[in-house]
Structure formats: C-alpha cells, structure tokens
Simulated assay, not measured.
Amino acid sequence: MNTRHFTALLVFLLLALFGLQGCGEDEPVVYVDMTKRQEVRVPEALPAITYAYLPQYSHTVSYRRHNPLIEYIAAETGLSLRQVFPDTFEEHRRMVERGDIDISFSNPFTYVSIAKTGARAFARIVEPSGSTNFRGQIIARTDNLLIQNLQDCRGKRWIAVDPLSAGGYLFALGHFLDHGIHPEDFAEIAFAPGPGGKQEKAVLAVYAGKYDIASIREGTLDVVKDKIDPERLRIVATTRDYPGWVYAARKGLPQEVVKAIADALFKLSMQKPEHAAILAGAGMSRIIPATDRDYEPIRELVAKTRFNEAAYDGRQDNAEGAQ
C-alpha cells in the first residue's frame, strides 16, 4: 500500500471512530409525534392598486422610469400601489380587460382598444418638448446609401415595434399610406420579438444590419443612446403628431380612487425640484386631464390603416397555443 492510500484509510478510520462516539447508548432519543401538525400559511399580498406601464421598453427601464412616480402617488393619496409588468402589449391589453391592471399607462392605440372593454381615459401627459402630442419616426443606418428618403423604403425590410404600438407601427403605417406606400410594397414587415424592450430591439435590429428600416416612437433614440453610436443611425422620416400617452382606469374601479390618483398626478409641477425629478425620470413635463374624445384621431387612423384587431387576436391565440 503506498503512502497516499494509507493516509486516506487512516483519515477514514478516524472519522468513523468519532462518528461512533457521537452515537452512544446514553444519547437521548427525541420522539416526534407526527399526529400533531400545524399548517403554515403563506401570507397573502395586501390589496393594492395595480399600475402598469405598457412594455415599450424593458421591465428594468419601466421600473426605473415609473417607480418614483408610483411612490409619489402612494404618499400623496395614502393608497397602496403595486407596479405590474406585462410582457407584451397584448398581455397588457388583456390584463386590463380581466381587471388585473387597475391603472394603465399606455400609448393611444392601446387605449382605444382597452376603451372597448370599458376602460376610460382620465389623464394624459405633456411631452418634455411641451407638446401634448407625440410622433413616430422611421430610421435607417447612416451608411445605408440605398435609403435616402421615404420612397426609398419600398422593397426594403421593415421592423416595427409591435402591431399594437402607436409610434412604433401604426403612425408609420399611416405615414407610408399617405405617401402611396402600402404594406405589400415592402420585402418584409417584422415585429420586435420577445417580451418587453421592443423599442430597443427595433433600433438594435437596424443598427446590427438585420433590417433596413425601423419604426419607433420619437424619443426612443435618446433612451437607447448608451447602447449605440447615435451617429450610425439617422431619421428618414417623422410622422404627423397624435394625442399623447394616456392614463386610463379599468372598468369598475371606484371613482373616488380614480379621482385621488388623478388629483395627485395633476399636482406634479416642474417648478418643484422633487416633482421635476419624478416627471423627468418618467419622460414627462406635466400631466393634464383627458377624456375619451381626445382619442378620436387614433380611431380615424385605425380606420384608415384598416387594422383588423380580431384577426390580430386570432394570430396571438394561435401563437400562444403553439408555445
């Protein structure tokens, strides 16, 4: 037997000896009565108003932009609020319909969809520029010399944010139609894959050269500027403006709750440093009252682009069933 084997055997025998000493005959025996049991209940989450930001960006960005705002509303109203994170635009829409989202912050296209389920607008934002409206943009790589203007987009590969995205799809589609360019004129129309972060994904897909053009909401390039070299992308076209992002309350949410939240939002002012940080972080300069009538231009755009919501729902259901 060599030295290494002898040493291993010696260690084993010593451990066994100590183990036997720990199991002596005078060691007390603990009796466990298995007939006496006590159920341990997992504490249920306290009731809270659920708040969701349509997932145009990643969940991390959504949290960072809106958590200070949620904390402000809670402190101002005494209500308990909890931010929830739908993975897709469609999931957001369906959660509002089911009552799983109480307060929805969404683009106007998603709003006119959830309004069909009884949700109602009560506030809208003023953009950092001071406008109550916003626009979409069509971008391409700077070094793509084949795309110099909107007409050059014919026959190219287009990636949009989501079929339910306003600035990231519907505004651009309406803009193309106004200039005589139809969906069948593109080599491909694709939508950013996966949950959340779809605005970034559309930008990065063009940046990497996978697609020729992308449609995004105005302001997205500023949000992703830490991930790209802005000089390598350029804006090919900008759409007309439409009513801005909107706060809506789900059907059945008590009116006193809606009023308390609305009053808190309307108090926010860029003139107060603590409020300015909250507003700027969320990409807003002010929050003002809104009504459902403010979004008639979106309904007109839906009619013009002939967006078939029922057909879209069917595609979504088929995709979910295949997963």
Score class of each variant (00 low, 15 high):
Glu296Tyr: 12
Val224Gly: 07
Arg4Asn: 11
Tyr242Val: 03
Lys201Cys: 05
Ala276His: 10
Thr238Asp: 01
Gln83Ser: 06
Glu231Cys: 07
Lys272Val: 13
Leu253Tyr: 01
Pro28Lys: 13
Arg93Ala: 13
Ile114Glu: 08
Lys201Thr: 04
Leu170Ala: 15
Lys272Met: 12
Val11Ile: 15
Ala16Thr: 11
Ala187Arg: 15
Glu296Asp: 12
Gln323His: 13
Glu25Pro: 08
Leu46Asn: 08
Asp143Ile: 02
Ile298Gly: 06
Tyr72Ser: 00
Pro193Asp: 11
Gln255Asn: 12
Ile213Tyr: 04
Pro43Leu: 10
Lys201Phe: 02
Glu231Thr: 14
Ala172Glu: 04
Ile213Arg: 01
Phe12Leu: 15
Val258Ile: 14
Ala166Pro: 01
Gly283Phe: 03
His275Asn: 10
Leu145Phe: 11
Ile261Cys: 01
Asp100Gln: 10
Tyr53His: 15
Gln21Leu: 15
Arg293Tyr: 10
Asp294Pro: 06
Trp158Ser: 02
Asp162Leu: 02
Trp158Asp: 03
Glu39Trp: 01
Gly130Ser: 06
Gly22Asn: 14
Ala45His: 12
Asn149Ala: 12
Gln83Lys: 12
Glu309Asn: 10
Ala48Cys: 06
Lys156Val: 01
Arg98Gln: 12
Gln148Lys: 15
Pro68Arg: 08
Arg4Ile: 12
Asn133Pro: 01
Ile73Cys: 01
Ile287His: 03
Pro86Ser: 07
Phe105Ser: 00
Ala16Met: 11
Asn107Phe: 04
Ala262Asn: 08
Asp241Arg: 11
Ile138Gln: 05
Glu188Trp: 10
Gly174Glu: 14
Ile73Asn: 00
Ile181Arg: 09
Ala319Asn: 14
Asn67Ile: 09
Leu81Phe: 11
Gln56Arg: 11
Ala190Asn: 11
Thr305Asn: 07
Asp212Met: 10
Leu81Ile: 09
Tyr51Phe: 15
Ala262Cys: 05
Ser62Phe: 01
Ile216Phe: 07
Arg65Gln: 14
Val32Asp: 00
Ala8Glu: 12
Leu164Trp: 09
Glu71Ala: 13
His175Gln: 13
Val32Trp: 00
Gln21Asn: 13
Glu71Trp: 10
Phe176Ser: 03
Gln21Pro: 02
Ala249Asp: 04
Cys153Tyr: 01
Val161Asn: 07
Pro243Cys: 07
Pro47Asp: 04
Lys198Gly: 06
Ala160Trp: 06
